[in-house]
């Protein structure tokens, strides 16, 4: 039981880290540009497909991922300059609708370019195996790599936002946008840079999950809703909130899937528990979100100045 719990804890951590990569970009774009980007999941998909194609071209997953990152950033840049920029002045409703349209376009473009079947990404031999983390706890190497890279990115963001000039501008922009531009900062460029950063983080998440699941059409459409739950629970615009929220949601989702049907079996017939279990564990994260908002309408860690 305890072995299983530890493994599920690691699985939950891995999901949480992945959610963090998505949520970090969302919360940046949301916090600074006040822009709701439903199409953030499409960048996640695009990252995965770039990485898949490049893996077959270069013959190496690692090189492919390194090359796919600037490519995803480029997509983010083009998107921001081409369309998103013109939407900042509109209200949230228009954001939701326009980016909803984007999801349709992105999914169909991917279908046209890569075909419907999706691509499996081969991993190099040293990433395919398993590691004995603790005695008796055997865990896939690549999932550990995901956890590691996610934590590394989290630390990098912490440094970027807390210690660099760009980070200072981001923090300032989140607190008071007009003031930043009044100080002579080119707010347009800042916004573009932040959007591209968000795109890279989402793309990276896609690249990391694709060797496990495959790069497929519409892969971002379900997880993006979960990522929204994360930033709402954590507090919009807060990086700390996104991190803690992501780990929380990742763990709850995984542990729910793992143990809820066993718990339910104590109360309801086994057959009903087996089918209700997965549905109720999917519901759990929304229950958490509603509960958090009912008591703290601004999320757990709302940014201080607004």
């Amino acid at each position: 039981m305890s072995t299983l719990f530890l493994i599920q804890f690691l699985n939950g951590l891995q999901l949480g880290v992945l959610l963090f990569l998505l949520a970090a970009g969302l919360t940046l774009v949301f916090g600074i540009m006040d822009f709701v980007n439903l199409a953030h999941g499409s960048l996640y998909m695009v990252g995965a497909f770039f990485c898949a194609t490049l893996t077959f071209w270069t013959g190496s997953f690692v090189w492919a991922a390194l090359l796919a990152i600037p490519l995803t950033a480029l997509v983010g840049l083009v998107l921001e300059i081409g369309v998103i920029r013109h939407l900042y002045q509109r209200d949230h409703l228009d954001h939701v609708l326009a980016t909803f349209g984007f999801i349709l376009i992105a999914d169909t473009l991917v279908h046209l370019i890569w075909g419907p079947e999706g691509i499996a990404i081969p991993l190099p031999g040293y990433l395919r195996g398993q590691v004995e983390v603790l005695p008796g706890i055997i865990f896939p190497t690549f999932r550990l790599v995901i956890i590691g890279s996610g934590l590394l990115v989290a630390f990098g963001l912490y440094w970027l936002i807390g210690r660099t000039r760009l980070g200072m501008l981001i923090r300032a922009g989140a607190s008071n946008r007009t003031m930043v531009s009044a100080l002579g900062i080119d707010i347009k460029t800042l916004f573009t840079a932040v959007f591209a950063l968000g795109a890279v983080l989402a793309g990276l998440a896609g690249m990391l999950i694709a060797p496990i699941t495959e790069a497929t059409i519409g892969m971002g459409n379900d997880i993006i809703i979960t990522a929204f739950v994360v930033i709402i629970v954590g507090g919009i615009g807060s990086m700390k909130g996104a991190f803690i929220g992501a780990l929380l949601i990742g763990l709850i989702d995984t542990l729910g899937r793992s143990f809820l049907d066993d718990i339910l079996k104590l109360f309801i017939p086994i057959n009903a528990a087996e089918t209700a279990g997965p549905a109720i564990s999917s519901m759990l994260i929304y229950l958490i979100m509603a509960a958090v908002l009912a008591f703290r309408p601004q999320g757990l860690f709302p940014p201080k100045v607004r």
């Binding site: 699985n11 999901l15 899937r257 793992s258 997965p278």
Partner: peptide, 18 residues
């Protein structure tokens, strides 16, 4: 026995561990 969310769930880490 585990029944997973169809068709969206593609990561079976928790189920495989179980």
């Amino acid at each position: 026995k585990d029944l997973t969310k169809w068709p969206s769930q593609l990561d079976f880490s928790a189920e495989l561990a179980k």
